[in-house]
Design a protein around this nucleic acid. Structure first.
Lengths: 222, 222
DNA sequence: CTCTTAATTAATCATAGCTTTAATTAATTT
DNA sequence: AAATTAATTAAAGCTATGATTAATTAAGAG
């Protein structure tokens, strides 16, 4: 009963030949469709036919506009993922010397990114975090390791000045920041299922900052 | 130069027919090979041929012993993943009333699991965490949501008793526990690449417990 | 109005994937 | 020792995939 109740985009079987001038920008439509498939099913599991069906066209269009599946994938990376990452990079890169403020800016930056690009966490986990992910090497080669290295360096300096819990590892702190922001956002569906509750980014920000600020301890009263 | 320098298992091209009685348990070998492929490349990207090559046999053996690729996948789940998860479940389930002790037990339990089954984090992220992961529904239907729900419930009670930072969300705390243990373990390769350093589970435990204990703050001196 | 060009579908190709079948050989049973 | 059973490879079948080509139609140029 529920199968195929809502066809993806277009229902009408278009005749071959150039369409009348009501056509939207198909290149953009294809990138959008590819991104949707990549996020939903993963890049490796997405076929040209899937993307074409999602966009409501034939697989040949994909080659007409991009030349190959790989080229389309590259375009999605270049025109969607990279701008998203860059926005975070700029947002967090220009921060002062105070690691607490820097932490807050990072947490809010990441979760702001998630609000702006809800597809980002899922794609990042599957295609960047996972070994063999299709975008991992590409992303590292394009934006480099500077941002995490810079953050870790700042944490290390603050620790030397005694401004940071000495038992922490500065590099793992960078990992923890992501584990408390991007990871929860990416895994939201499974927690929604388990806890039967929606955990929005605002709650996430508050929780992450509280945990980073004081850990599990209740507010100090002394 | 580095390509194919070390063939996966057997090099000698075995003739057809039943082998002389030096054969190891091929069923176990196949499960092992499948797990290795699943962890390295992901379940969706692993073909029968890949598994067969990894085990040094023909793809037909896979059908001879399991009937289908799906059945082999089910066997890997049942005989490898499920026991690993169960061991954690028992380890953490039998904990006292103190949430601090419970937290420590969970962190040490997860990272002990990682030490015992180094393949676990990667597989968990790709096949359970990721939407559409091949093992997600299976795992939820087999072990259920009780463990995370129980942990969240304990945190909520402790918070009501004033023993827990009031700004934290009890459910997100469960997520955070995983974000500070399983997630770093799963993403270790990428951090290794970025920081040019190995971050072992012992460092991870110390760091996670420090962060959970006091957050970023230096040790209190008042 | 005609010709060319752009955009699209349908049909096709070659390749790789999962599965099945037939053939082959060693072990086991009688 | 002959017959049967078990374990294995080689080969083939069918399907899905990425890519290409030919056909088709509207838009735009002269």
């Amino acid at each position: 009963m529920t199968t195929q109740a809502t066809p993806p985009r277009t229902v009408k079987r278009r005749a071959p030949g150039r369409p009348a001038t009501d056509s939207p920008d198909l290149r953009a439509t294809l990138i959008e469709a590819a991104l949707a498939c990549f996020v939903r099913d993963g890049i490796a599991a997405t076929s040209s036919r899937n993307i074409a069906k999602e966009a409501g066209v034939t697989p040949a269009m994909l080659n007409y506009y991009f030349g190959s599946k790989q080229a389309l994938q590259d375009a999605v990376f270049e025109e969607r993922l990279l701008p998203a990452v860059m926005s975070l990079r700029e947002r967090v890169g220009s921060t002062g010397d105070d690691v607490i403020a820097m932490t807050r800016q990072f947490v809010q930056g990441v979760l702001g990114l998630v609000d702006a690009f809800p597809w980002f966490p899922s794609l990042w986990v599957r295609e960047v975090l996972c070994e063999g992910g299709a975008l991992r090497e590409l992303l590292l080669s394009r934006i480099g390791p500077e941002l995490p290295q810079m953050l870790a360096g700042r944490f290390a300096q603050a620790q030397q000045r005694g401004q940071l819990n000495a038992a922490l590892d500065p590099r793992l702190l960078v990992v923890s920041l992501i584990g408390l922001t991007l990871f929860p956002a990416a895994s939201a569906p499974i927690w929604r299922q388990i806890f039967q509750a929606e955990l929005g980014t605002d709650v996430l920000v508050r929780h992450a900052l509280a945990l980073l600020g004081h850990g599990l301890e209740p507010a100090h009263e002394n």
